[in-house]
């Protein structure tokens, strides 16, 4: 058996005091203890950025690589040794700007890696430029008059790349995050966990309207497979279908009963409803937290192994020489 401390490296953690990354790190230590995979069988890969420092604080194998390429490197690790539990620590810039191409292709291939996307909607390490998830009009050092472009919504990108696992959590929610990370690890294939994260220095408080304790019950909904989609301070609200869209209702009002409230099903292969849930933004509809989508599909590295085994059944050569001798060979005696 393992404890959270078995996964902590002796390295002093050097994020800014109050950074949301601390919460993710603690949750990850806890999740790994629950998963009970030995530290030496885990590889944590990262790109560049504040969140990409994470591998140094893990007592596992770790590789802090180059900007944006973490998904490709993690893919190589997993394909080379499918027995390893492979994690990618990345941020909104690393994953969705410079690394956007690798992200969508990793998701499309469905390699069994767990992507922790720490989304604080800002570039922290380069000191405060807007990121591809910053809202239109966001004022930053590189957008002094506000941005004139729309942001990516990570779930949309993941589903566009045929993502099979998508979950969302809040950096400070150390109660629920480990459970979500465990689910991500148990999913065979690429798991994307978006962490709504606060940057205390350059983007402090941008998530307050959603994540503050007083706002959270009405502005978020925690989804669990097989359970009713209920939220609110007194769990008095629910999500119901309204034509092609979703609607938040108060149970017992306007003729809506508990029976009308939708039951969450993470396994729907059609991503339509998952997409609607994931795109709820906390204004009219609450931001969805928890595991939103968890659909089975063949994992790339397993398909690779399967194909090798299949070909080996048909072709007897196991060494280069044996193979070469099956070609257009002539002998000189």
């Amino acid at each position: 058996m393992f404890e959270a401390k078995d996964y902590k490296s002796p390295q002093l953690v050097r994020w800014c005091p109050g950074c949301g990354d601390y919460g993710v790190l603690n949750s990850l230590h806890k999740a790994m203890a629950q998963l009970a995979v030995a530290p030496h069988n885990i590889a944590v890969i990262s790109g560049i950025g504040c969140s990409s420092r994470l591998p140094y604080y893990m007592n596992t194998y770790g590789f802090h690589t180059i900007h944006g390429r973490g998904a490709a490197i993690a893919t190589g690790v997993k394909v080379a040794n499918p027995a390893l539990s492979v994690w990618l620590a990345t941020g909104d810039g690393d994953c969705l700007a410079i690394g956007g191409n690798h992200f969508i292709h990793a998701v499309r291939r469905n390699v069994d890696i767990n992507i922790l996307l720490m989304n604080n909607k800002i570039y922290g390490l380069t000191k405060g430029q807007y990121s591809p998830t910053s809202a239109r009009g966001f004022v930053s050092k590189s957008s002094p008059f506000g941005t004139i472009e729309d942001p990516f919504r990570p779930a949309e990108l993941a589903f566009g790349a045929r993502g099979r696992f998508f979950a969302r959590t809040i950096d400070t929610d150390v109660k629920n995050t480990p459970e979500i990370l465990v689910a991500a690890a148990r999913h065979k294939g690429t798991s994307v966990v978006e962490v709504i994260l606060n940057c205390v220095i350059f983007n402090d408080g941008i998530n307050d309207s959603i994540v503050k304790q007083e706002n959270r019950p009405d502005r978020t909904i925690f989804l669990r497979h097989g359970e009713k989609m209920i939220f609110g301070k007194n769990r008095e609200k629910g999500l119901v279908r309204d034509g092609f869209t979703l609607k938040a209702v108060t149970i017992g009002e306007n003729g809506y009963t508990l029976d009308d409230v939708l039951v969450h099903d993470t396994t729907l292969s059609d991503p339509f409803l998952h997409s609607q849930l994931a795109l709820m933004d906390g204004a009219e509809l609450p931001v969805a937290l928890g595991v939103i989508r968890d659909v089975e599909a063949p994992a790339y590295e397993e398909e690779m192994e399967r194909q090798i085994a299949e070909v080996q059944e048909k072709k007897p050569a196991r060494t280069l020489k044996e193979y070469l001798m099956t070609g257009d060979v002539w002998e000189v005696k």
Partner: peptide, 16 residues
């Protein structure tokens, strides 16, 4: 997906 991922997957495989 591209040349960069070509070498980066190889780097990951080498690490592994």
């Amino acid at each position: 997906e591209d040349e960069i991922a070509g070498i980066c997957t190889a780097i990951g495989a080498s690490f592994a």
